[in-house]
Design a protein around this nucleic acid. Sequence first.
DNA 1: TATGAATGAGTATTCATTCAT
DNA 2: TATGAATGAATACTCATTCAT
Lengths: 211, 211, 211, 211
Amino acid sequence: MRSRFEGSVPGSANSRTFIETARRQQLIDAAVATVNELGYHRASLAEIAKRARIAKSAVVYYFSAKEALLLELVETVFAALDEQVVAAVDGVSEPAARLQAYADAYLAHVDVHRQAVAAAVEIAVSHRTAEGTPLYLVADDADTALLRSILRAGMDEGTFRSMPIEVATGLTESVLDHAITLVQRHPGADLGELRAQVVPYLLRALRAQDD
Amino acid sequence: MRSRFEGSVPGSANSRTFIETARRQQLIDAAVATVNELGYHRASLAEIAKRARIAKSAVVYYFSAKEALLLELVETVFAALDEQVVAAVDGVSEPAARLQAYADAYLAHVDVHRQAVAAAVEIAVSHRTAEGTPLYLVADDADTALLRSILRAGMDEGTFRSMPIEVATGLTESVLDHAITLVQRHPGADLGELRAQVVPYLLRALRAQDD
Amino acid sequence: MRSRFEGSVPGSANSRTFIETARRQQLIDAAVATVNELGYHRASLAEIAKRARIAKSAVVYYFSAKEALLLELVETVFAALDEQVVAAVDGVSEPAARLQAYADAYLAHVDVHRQAVAAAVEIAVSHRTAEGTPLYLVADDADTALLRSILRAGMDEGTFRSMPIEVATGLTESVLDHAITLVQRHPGADLGELRAQVVPYLLRALRAQDD
Amino acid sequence: MRSRFEGSVPGSANSRTFIETARRQQLIDAAVATVNELGYHRASLAEIAKRARIAKSAVVYYFSAKEALLLELVETVFAALDEQVVAAVDGVSEPAARLQAYADAYLAHVDVHRQAVAAAVEIAVSHRTAEGTPLYLVADDADTALLRSILRAGMDEGTFRSMPIEVATGLTESVLDHAITLVQRHPGADLGELRAQVVPYLLRALRAQDD
DNA sequence: TATGAATGAGTATTCATTCAT
DNA sequence: TATGAATGAATACTCATTCAT
């Protein structure tokens, strides 16, 4: 919807120059660092700009507003997480195996991109739009849908214990998100043990057989 | 264990008059309402004072600073939760039964005091001191210790599967905290199904027998 | 619609303290001076506050926003002008005499309150609401209605020449507003000659007899 | 008589290339559109450039500054108005006829070039130099001189009533400028009635005979 | 000839806090 | 015990201008 002629405000994604793309990434990185260091609440334009070694107004030059920068950060991070997870379950058909692939990919991504994920989650949890509504829905939906479909398939098949799908999905997400909580609280934490335990933990919690 | 931030005006805890105690509670209630309505970010002194039908400066009179009010809120809420949970497990000796008592009490408290718990958690997650450090440690510790001891006892006994105690504790907490996430996102949510499912879910995930 | 409990923001008009009323007037005076000196465009909160020898934030303390201050200025000025004019025509029944009373009162008010009127008109002409619409309607309507009714009565009666009422009203207003233009351009101008000439000028332009 | 603000880049008026002249006109047109659409206050370089489908910095390339563009706009518009009016009265010798020619030409020009005139007047009224002085003198003088000379001649001759020349000139201008006010407030207004009424209105107001 | 990049000064507004009463 | 008054620092954002290319 944007015209090429809107002053010097950078254009749409497909018309980005090299330097613009680089600057936008640099600013997203700076925002990640700022949010992790100071928290969402104190992550002001000034602090982000300082970390990017750039003027405050340059941030607004590349992103039309602080909100746009943070939202792009969130979107980027969750899109990457989603992509990795979707790729991991692709081609796997057994529900239990799919859940395992899903969880492994999810935790691996959180482990490797912990700073970005920690910042994105802090923003998603803290940010409210101008009208006051939080962001809970913006980024998580595709992700949730996939997980829900895996669990539903497992229940239908009899591999997973029958239980309300929302409860099963929510608890599974909570278990996986523990990795995020962990890296938020201890940025250098070793997730090895957690990654080793989570899938069996989930499978035991969900499986149907005996008892 | 009172926080360092509590403020010395108008008097120490043991010298509080009746009216002062009432005012402090009134302000904490107002803060809960404000945080739930507007979010931590927009929960200003002015908004809190408005809901308490009191002047902004009176808030500072009873609590030395906004931060002291919020921290007392957090402490109060987690102390009450802790108290209920401790009372529930008291006298129960079998680890599995203790876990069940713990979880049931925890979820019941969250269910009944959802507004207060939701606000306290939002503050605990969002607030940072002037130096930028988060609050993760202030309130949760006693709680975590009890849960950890239950799990450790269960593992020692052979009821619970052997696994790194931090992982087991963290995952259990994450599962329980799903209830909080739920009421934060949907203040009117019915926790019945969740409360019915969580204990069996945890026991399956943790139990030692077969496989 | 305002509650008594909205932080320390001053309450509704009937609950104003002495000091508050004084401050509001002082700020309106400062705004008049600023607009006349620098123009609407450069009349920033900082400049207004400087002239009132008060902090910028105090302006916002008494008026919730810059716009509210300027709009109150405009309203106050036009209400006073309107009141004077209405009082002047009250009890006069002949259209020509009513027009004379109207014009004399109008010009006298502009003459005496030239700074305030000049500022109010500059604001009314320059200000746009957030949506971009100007203020043309906010203040002038009651005034215009009275003038229109006088002219219509004169035409019905045969004293004034028949012509489209909007044209007659608009031209008469333009003639009267010349006094405002004059004091805007030359703040110290002597309006004596103009005031002596305007009524006969208007009556000649409007009267029905001969030709 | 070119303004001091015109800027020396890229060349003086007599050395302008064809493309440069075209660009300058294009930018003036864009400025007219912008001022009419958004008002002087929000007519930023970025908005003007957007409407000219050109980069912001190109505006500064052709005009040394935003101010130079706006001032040239004002000058251009009033020069054209002046030219039309001068041509209309040229060869007419009777003061009343000259006034009629003057007024008709003035109103016709305003009617036909209403966008440009509305924008120029809004700028002339709103703009202040860095020191805070308005533009009232920049464009209007030649115009006023002609009108004044017509009225003076009419008074000397006895056709127009004797009155202070500044008053007569000012009132006449105010009457004529009502057309501008009208098109500013209602860009699509039909000026037919007004144009039909103004000249007789003025002649009645000014004429000497009877009383 | 024209532009994208970048900036510094300025804008209105928010807000926790101080203080005299 | 409680408050209204006042403020300074911080906030996101705007904008004319500069400059290398």
